[in-house]
Design a binder for these strands. Structure first.
Length: 189
DNA sequence: CCCTGATTCGC
DNA sequence: GCGAATCAGG
């Protein structure tokens, strides 16, 4: 008995579980993870809407979804793929990301701290990384792969740039990149 | 950057 | 009906 692969067809069971979890307030991604890896959060959301289950815990607030005044310009759908098992299965398996049982909000970013935290407590990090003098860079020493996060007062001689290896996705190292993003973006656009 | 749900539309 | 891609927001 092995012929039971069938794509995640929405059986009564699954729909029931979906309804239950959705009503309990679980997020779509969490439900998707609970139902199985053959289901994505998009699938869950799509089904939820089709079942007209939207609003779950909406005490008193009719949020009239702002009507998209500007209709989508075009629809560059996916790249037409032959869902011949391989593609679907592979992508599904590939996207099985970390199972985070908790809703994010606290951003648990564990920065690589010194493994050995002896009883020695030096001065507060001042919310900044300590860069050894030999690694500090001046403006002219910067290049495409050095973190360009400025440290100190530009008007003083001890001003320098982080200089760590920067990420491909930005001008800063991981530490400062993350910091920069969390700093901006906080507000709307 | 992470994430959330909402919507559209090719299949 | 389904769900990926996209959008809009936190």
């Amino acid at each position: 008995m092995v012929s039971e692969a069938q794509t995640a067809g929405w059986t009564e069971e699954r729909v029931e579980l979906l309804k239950k979890l959705w009503m309990e307030g679980l997020s779509a991604s969490q439900i998707a993870g609970e139902l199985g890896q053959g289901v994505t959060r998009n699938a869950v959301i799509g089904k939820v809407h089709r079942l007209k289950l939207s609003a779950r815990a909406k005490p008193t607030n009719t949020t009239p979804r702002a009507r998209p005044a500007a209709p989508r310009p075009a629809a560059p759908r996916r790249v037409t793929g032959t869902s011949s098992g391989l593609g679907g299965a592979a992508s599904a398996a590939a996207k099985v990301r970390h199972t985070m049982p908790r809703p994010q909000t606290i951003g648990a970013t564990a920065l690589a701290a010194a493994p050995e935290m002896e009883a020695e407590l030096y001065v507060a990090p001042a919310a900044e990384l300590y860069i050894p003098e030999e690694k500090r860079l001046s403006l002219l020493q910067l290049n495409e792969h050095t973190c360009k996060w400025p440290i100190g007062d530009p008007l003083t001689p001890d001003f320098y740039f982080c200089g760590q290896h920067s990420l491909e996705s930005g001008p800063y190292c991981e530490f400062h990149s993350r910091r920069a993003y969390h700093q901006l973006d906080r507000k709307k656009r």
